[in-house]
Nucleic acid binder design. Structure first.
Length: 492
RNA sequence: CGGGGUGUGGCCCAGUCCGGUCAAGGCGCCUGGUUUGGGACCAGGAGAUCGCAGGUUCGAAUCCUGCCACCCCGACCA
């Protein structure tokens, strides 16, 4: 593993890219815009997935799986949704290759194997799912229908970045059907809270909950709820969205149900999703110039134990202590790696576990054998202290809790520092251009103004925060009346 | 889609302008030995049709033509 990372302060983008590689999270594949998620990175995703999956089930959802291909005729049924995604679709047109008569050993697309109807590789699954729901829903007794799917989707973006925006990515998408508007709205909001709780409690990533402006709304939605996080470079990251779809998809796919009075009604819908992008958010929220910093609740390894020894005999003595401590910690559900690999020196291992963001490192050497101690180093603050071996598992358990709390606190403090209010256009541009971060400002509510602000500053409305108070003001750009402030930032 | 790069052992890359012991170096890997409290060292060893296809030439990683792929910066988006 190579040494050192670029400094965040000098080139945040290069820092991020190199960190992803050096922490062994993912790498570029031979396929444009597509990544290989490596075991360590995938382990983080699995941890995220496990927690979210449980939360979805606790809120009454079931998992199912729908096809990756969407026939074009289904795809185009909900017009706005289709239009929104049309520019970034991969399309299957043929189903067979054959030997190329002109090029020995090469294959070509068999023109005889052209599909009658093209298949769209799902950029999202509303179409295929709602065409299925039509068959599943007849009566109010079939509602609510609460389904989640873990899947891959493809969006042919112009420009990609590992985890943050890849052509293919992993995500979950919830698709629910309800008898009433109120119920669908409640669901939409509920899932946004599930995401927000996950972001804060597990990722230690504070988020702002709010509503997207019309132009930022999901294609085909009536309303998009979102959680927005702030990265260390002052840019915002949309970390999750939950959409109230109204009856748009029900109407497009003719999904009606008989209510208790036998009257036919269109069902109400929501959809919501988070993706492997969360890993990008996790990285950019906590990590430092030494590498990844992971919150204990999502770290694949909680504790790495590094022996420091001279000769096999000493190693054996240390291993005895290490294995006992490891067993104690494991009994408390702490994931421990005892790294007695003789091919690496301690210094190398220290740097390696720092790069990989392991929350706690324990070193045990001859001094410790004598004193009955171990050296405990925490990744978040880089502090080291010597602790007695007695009750170490309990101490480490507490330490992991503290690290989890500290990471969230630190991220909150950072976000507070980089959240400001602008009352004039000058203040606004000054903040956006020079300081970065979130900027609260009055907006006249028009798409035109939103667009102009974006053109002139690159800042977009991240959301209309739920906890924003209603107050009369005047738009920082147009000077027209505003009903309240909204949240601006440059975004990923 | 514009702009800029890159493609050479598993990885990072030198060499390309100026064609000829040029396929160099570092990391990693294998063998042996010494080491081990912040990325060890010594000795020996294995590993490359220089992105692909043509062409020029006595001779091409190097020059010419065409193609392909990926990355980075923007516009578009999760």
């Amino acid at each position: 593993m190579a040494k050192g990372l670029p400094k965040r302060s000098e080139d945040f983008s290069a820092w991020y890219n190199e960190l992803v590689g050096k922490a062994d999270l993912a790498e570029h594949s031979g396929v444009k815009g597509c990544m290989v998620v490596k075991p360590y990175g995938y382990a983080i995703w699995e941890n995220m997935k496990a927690v979210l999956d449980q939360k979805f089930k606790e809120t009454g959802h079931q998992n199912a799986y729908f096809p990756i291909f969407v026939p074009k005729s289904l795809f185009e049924a909900e017009e706005k949704n289709a239009e929104g995604f049309a520019k970034e679709c991969a399309i299957v047109t043929h189903y067979r290759l054959k030997n190329d008569p002109d090029k020995e050993g090469k294959l070509m697309v068999d023109p005889a194997a052209k599909l009658q109807e093209e298949l769209i590789v799902r950029p999202t699954s509303e179409a295929i799912i709602w065409s299925t729901y039509k068959k599943w829903i007849q009566s109010y007794r079939d509602l609510p229908l609460l389904i989640n799917q873990w899947a891959n989707v493809v969006r042919w973006e112009m420009r990609t970045r590992l985890f943050l925006r890849t052509t293919e990515f992993l995500w979950q998408e919830g698709h629910t059907a309800h008898a009433t508007k109120a119920e669908a709205l409640e669901e939409t909001e509920k899932m946004m809270y599930v995401y927000a709780d996950f972001a804060e409690d597990y990722m230690a990533m504070p988020v702002i909950k709010g509503l997207k402006s019309e132009s930022e709304r999901f294609a085909g939605a009536e309303d998009t709820y979102c959680i927005e996080a702030l990265m260390q470079d002052g840019k915002a990251l949309q970390a999750g969205t939950s959409h109230f779809l109204g009856q748009n998809f029900a109407k497009a796919f003719d999904v009606k149900f008989a209510d208790a009075d036998g009257k036919q009604e269109y069902v109400w819908a929501s959809s919501w999703g988070v993706s492997t992008r969360l890993i990008g958010g996790l990285i950019m929220t906590h990590s430092d110039d030494l590498g990844l910093v992971l919150p204990p609740k999502l770290a694949p390894i909680h504790v790495a134990i590094v022996p420091i020894y001279k000769g096999g005999e000493q190693l054996a003595q240390i291993s005895e202590v290490a294995n006992k401590l490891k067993a104690d910690m494991q009994a408390k559900g702490i994931i421990v790696k005892y790294d007695d690999d003789d091919k690496r020196k301690p210094g190398w291992k220290f740097a390696e576990y720092e790069m990989k963001g392991v929350p706690v490192r324990i070193a045990i050497g001859p001094r410790d054998l004598e004193n009955g101690t171990v050296e405990v180093a925490r990744r978040d603050t880089l502090e080291k202290e010597s602790l007695q071996q007695e009750d170490l598992a309990i101490k480490v358990e507490h330490l992991l809790e503290q690290i989890q709390i500290n990471l969230l606190d630190r991220a909150k403090t950072y976000r507070e520092e980089f959240t400001n209010v602008a009352t004039t256009w000058d203040e606004f541009t000054e903040l956006i251009d020079n300081k970065g971060g979130f900027v609260h400002a009055h907006w006249d509510g028009t798409e035109e103004t939103e667009q102009k602000i974006k053109e002139e500053t690159k800042a977009t409305i991240r959301c209309i925060p739920f906890d924003q108070k209603e107050e009369a003001g005047s738009c920082i750009y147009s000077g027209n009346p505003s009903k309240g402030m909204v949240l601006f930032a440059k975004a990923y």
